[in-house]
Design a protein around this nucleic acid. Structure first.
Length: 561
RNA sequence: UGACCCAUGGUGUAAUGGUAACACAGCAGAUUUUGGUUCUGUUAUUCUAGGUUCGAGUCCUGGUGGGUCAACCA
């Protein structure tokens, strides 16, 4: 017997509609092609496509392209690629712009019914006429134009006789309505601009509120799922559908995703790109889908995240750590282990034969026996991590220190006999000795060492560039600008650190799409920009996707780095 | 001082009038050739005041707090 699955409130609504006799489930994901998708969209995508799949229904992809000045096919293409990468396929690809003629016809119908009128007021006059949230609006002097005049003017708007901003079509509802959206909302405005799909065919464009519900209706969407800020739009959504007597789609709202240390608004993400605070939409520090992809996140991890954050109506701020946890959850099972040293110090093993190379067998993935083993070269000189040695170690430090012993992972136990310093007093080199009987476990006298560290044979090491990322913003709520500043003042100046790491030789052959765990350091992938690709055949650059959980860092407090 | 939405551990999400639970985070321990993984244990929750009821996180009313709405954006 299956454990009963917990439903989110949208799924409950869907199941209720099925119980009430609605035979179909049809959702849609309706992005405006004016920017790149981000992790918040991923939540919506997982919800809409997930519900369609779960209830054997359909999910359309519809581009809400009603504002030609902001939209571009560049974004259409990236959105489609991102959805597919996330693992979803739409049942139909539609564009609001495909419905312009139908929408126009319905507008004419509303004019004829006395439910819409052409307003000649200026933008400023319309704004003041709308009143405020506490004061009712006032009727436009053009509100009671004759049907004939409205029809004529609207046709001439379409014909391009008027300049932008001179006339709009408005729904005639109620200028005193307590819901501002119902105070004779705009249906059409004049925009003399090239549309990325309809070209110059139109110079009047429908507003979101007029286009969205009708587009849902045309596609016979049963459950139109959107974010909370649209809930005040729902009466208007319903009003147009009811006036027109068309298929009754229904809108349901859920709380959008927020993540701490992250900004999610398209406007701010665009600003980060345009002002070059990041390298582009796919900068690995960006919360965009393409950024996360480049960073090395997998579709599975993002889907798991969407599942973990849940769906409700409460405003929420998810801990960035949860997203990282989702990445580790999968990568721990799947990523091959490799050794790399990010910040090397050289270790010379004085009693190891000069010129000798041993090939040591290392496990590729302890979580997956089928991943097998590989041989890694070992020699008299190795690199170890600077963090893995301390001249004056604190209590419970298991790593190397003067006179102390540590095991080189899969290799020998070494003992630190001497520390060499450079002119600045930094540790330059360690002189060690090894226990020849300790290879792969055990030791000459049965003693155990607690510490195990990763290493790379110095003469065999391959230097590669590694990009280490930290959160893009230094504060939990980056949207809250400091006194007199902007959200940009919250940027984390240390969000990117580039180092040259010394790697085991096999890593030189890594290609796009490869993901590894560098033992004890985290999960890494080969960097690859789709937007600005590097030439083929270059040495790989690695991105750190996420660190490993590090309980030593917690014990050591600020001592590590 | 309008309309609408929301309020459950630190963070999220369940509990559909009947024992407040799950995940992440935290803490403690076990295992471990990754201070990883895994396993075990554990800390901590119903905004407030009334009301209805045998019984309220759940229903009702008031309050408080948060959010959304006054683009010719979506």
């Amino acid at each position: 017997m299956e454990t009963p699955e917990k439903l989110n409130f949208i799924e409950e609504i869907v199941e209720a509609s099925i119980r009430n006799g609605e035979p179909r489930v049809h959702t849609r994901f309706p992005p405006e092609p004016n920017g790149y998708l981000h992790i918040g969209h991923a939540k919506s995508i997982c919800l809409n496509f997930g519900i369609a799949k779960k209830y054997h229904g359909k999910c359309n992809l519809r581009f809400d392209d009603t504002n030609p000045v902001k939209e571009d096919t560049e974004y259409v293409d990236s959105i489609k690629a991102d959805i597919r990468w996330l693992g979803f396929e739409w049942d139909g690809e539609y564009y609001a712009s495909d419905y312009f003629e139908q929408l126009y016809g319905w507008a004419v119908e509303l004019i004829k019914k006395g439910k819409a009128y052409v307003d000649d007021q200026s933008q400023e006059e319309i704004r003041t006429g709308r009143g405020t949230v506490t004061q009712p609006g006032t009727n436009s002097p053009f509100r009671d134009r004759s049907t004939e005049e409205n029809l004529d003017l609207f046709a001439r708007m379409r014909a391009g006789e008027f300049a932008e901003g001179t006339r709009v079509l408005r729904a005639k509802i109620d200028m005193a309505h307590p819901n501002m959206l119902m105070r004779d909302p705009l249906m059409y405005r004049i925009i003399h601009a090239e549309h990325h799909r309809t070209g110059d065919k139109w110079c009047i464009y429908p507003m979101y509120d007029y286009a969205h519900g009708e587009s849902d209706s045309i596609e016979r969407i049963t459950h139109s799922i959107c974010t909370l800020e649209f809930d005040v739009h729902r009466p208007l959504y319903d009003w147009f559908i009811e006036q027109l007597g068309i298929f009754p789609s229904h809108q349901y709202e859920f709380a959008r995703l927020n993540i701490n240390y992250t900004v999610m608004s398209k406007r701010k993400l665009l600003q980060l790109v345009q002002e070059k605070h990041v390298t582009g939409w796919d900068d690995p520090r960006m919360p965009t889908i393409c950024g996360l992809r480049r960073r090395g996140y997998t579709p599975e991890a993002i889907r798991l995240f969407a599942e973990k954050v849940g769906v409700a109506k409460r405003d929420n701020v998810i801990d960035l750590g949860l997203l990282e946890w989702c990445a580790r959850e999968e990568l721990n099972r799947t990523a091959l282990r490799r050794m790399a040293v990010l910040d090397p110090i050289k270790v010379v093993i004085a009693n190891y034969p000069e010129g000798q190379t041993e090939w040591i067998e290392c496990v590729n993935n302890p979580e997956d026996a089928e991943a097998g083993t590989r041989k890694v070269p070992f020699s008299r000189e190795v690199y170890i991590e600077r963090d893995d040695f301390m001249t004056d170690p604190p209590k419970k430090y298991y790593r190397l220190s003067p006179g102390g012993e540590v095991r080189l992972r899969y290799g020998y136990i070494i003992k630190c006999d001497e520390v060499l310093y450079d002119a600045q007093g930094h540790v330059a080199e360690l002189r060690c000795s090894y226990d020849p009987l300790s290879l792969g476990g055990g030791s000459s006298d049965g003693r155990k060492v607690k510490g195990i560290i990763h290493w790379v044979s110095a003469p065999d090491a391959v230097p590669v560039q590694v990009q280490l990322f930290d959160r893009l913003f230094a504060v939990e709520s980056p949207d809250e600008a400091p006194e007199g500043g902007t959200f940009l003042d919250n940027l984390n100046p240390q969000s990117l650190r580039i180092v040259t790491a010394q790697c085991e030789p096999s890593l030189a052959e890594a290609v796009k799409g490869d993901r590894f765990q560098f033992e004890r350091l985290g999960y890494f992938c080969v960097d690859h920009s789709e937007i600005d690709p590097q030439p083929e055949g270059c040495a790989p650059v690695f991105n750190r996707i996420v660190t490993l959980k590090d309980s030593w860092a917690k014990i050591a407090g600020g001592e590590g780095k």
